[in-house]
Simulated assay, not measured.
Amino acid sequence: MHIVKHPESRQLVRSIKASALVFEDKNSKQLMSYIQQISPSEASVLIHGETGTGKELVARQIHALSHRKNQPFVAVNCGALSDTLAETELFGHEKGAFTGAVSNQMGWFEVANGGTIFLDEIGDLSPNIQVKLLRILQENEVVRLGSRQTKKIDVRVIAATNVNLEDAVYAGNFREDLYFRLKVASLQILPLRLRPGDILPLARYFIHEYSQKLKHRTNNIQYTLSEEAEQLLCHYYHWPGNIRELENAIHHALLVCKNDIIQVDDFQLTGFKHRLSLYESNFQMYPSNDKSLKQVLFEWFEQGIIDLDNQLEAEIIEAAFEYCHENQLHTANLLGISRNIVRGRLIKHGLLSSNTRILTSSTS
């Protein structure tokens, strides 16, 4: 939430989150090493990653490792700003600049002066705002809406996106010159499903944090995960909501856990069915890298599983649908088939109601 304290003084209200940088996976450790290299510089940074992977946490870490660490860190969600609102929020306005502008107001770039501004979902900015942002990066000065005077600023920009900006540039939706200005340094935060070494350390961290917050009702119980729960978290769920979803899952599990050992049934996971699926019954709790797909198929052939082709189709379409956050268009693109075929298979295997509305390309 943003609160206006005074026409010339704005501040951020920080929500208290349990989320933290827990990088134990080898890929995460490599990323942290890169972060430590680029943080002391003044370079703009472009962070790419799915929603919930911790892009703001990484941005805060870059700020904390820089010489600006004692100066402001301002986080702005560009995806929540309309074109008109974005201009006054980012760059400020003068009294009388528009109806309702009853006083002068600093924009977030001025608030962040001397420190770092984090622009999340940068790809959602309109072409008009992109032009003005490019000027700030080039000239290190900002012009408030309704003013003709420039104000010099000293701000490091860290931007983040969950879309491919190169594709956006190619499609004409994002300025190429701004893209290259932003990605002097760039990094990719892998989704949680590709950082399996982080899952249990994160889960244990969240268990500790929420146990402390809930200690008035848990009597300081020391919670642990059952072996089956660990297997679920690491091997049988792909975390479409990433770290944020894992945090919420742990929070829920602690609320309903009947003793000090968290069980599979204590989790409330999107699209997860508590059943012995073809995948679960034949992988027998082995990590996926212990067996090749061909080896597993050979075992299924030996077992003489009835209607194997249909069961495989059901597993593939369900996994792809969950992987794509239940987005039919993205599922179709992932599998290389049409959305009508995806919809038909989802209905066939009971994953979608036949009367569910088909999303248009603009909403999917």
Rank of each mutant, 00 (worst) to 15 (best):
W108C: 06
K95H: 11
L182H: 01
D198R: 06
N70D: 14
P191V: 04
N162Y: 06
F174S: 01
E209H: 12
G115C: 13
R193E: 03
P72V: 02
A160E: 02
A171E: 15
G146C: 10
R148G: 14
G197W: 07
L187M: 13
R193V: 07
N104K: 14
V102K: 14
E94M: 14
D154I: 03
E139P: 05
R193Q: 07
V131S: 12
E166T: 11
I117S: 11
D83N: 10
E87C: 05
A203N: 04
A159V: 04
G197K: 07
Q71F: 10
I199G: 10
Q130H: 08
E87K: 15
A97E: 07
P72E: 02
V163Y: 05
N140T: 13
P72W: 01
V111K: 12
D167F: 05
F91K: 05
D124K: 06
L178N: 03
N140H: 15
E110F: 08
P127D: 12
Y179E: 05
G114D: 07
T116R: 10
R68F: 03
G146L: 10
P191D: 05
V102G: 10
P72S: 03
Q188V: 10
P201H: 09
E87H: 14
M106Y: 14
P72L: 03
F73C: 01
T84G: 11
S147D: 09
Y205W: 14
G114E: 07
L133M: 14
R181Q: 13
A80D: 00
Y170G: 03
V131R: 13
A101Y: 11
G114L: 08
W108I: 00
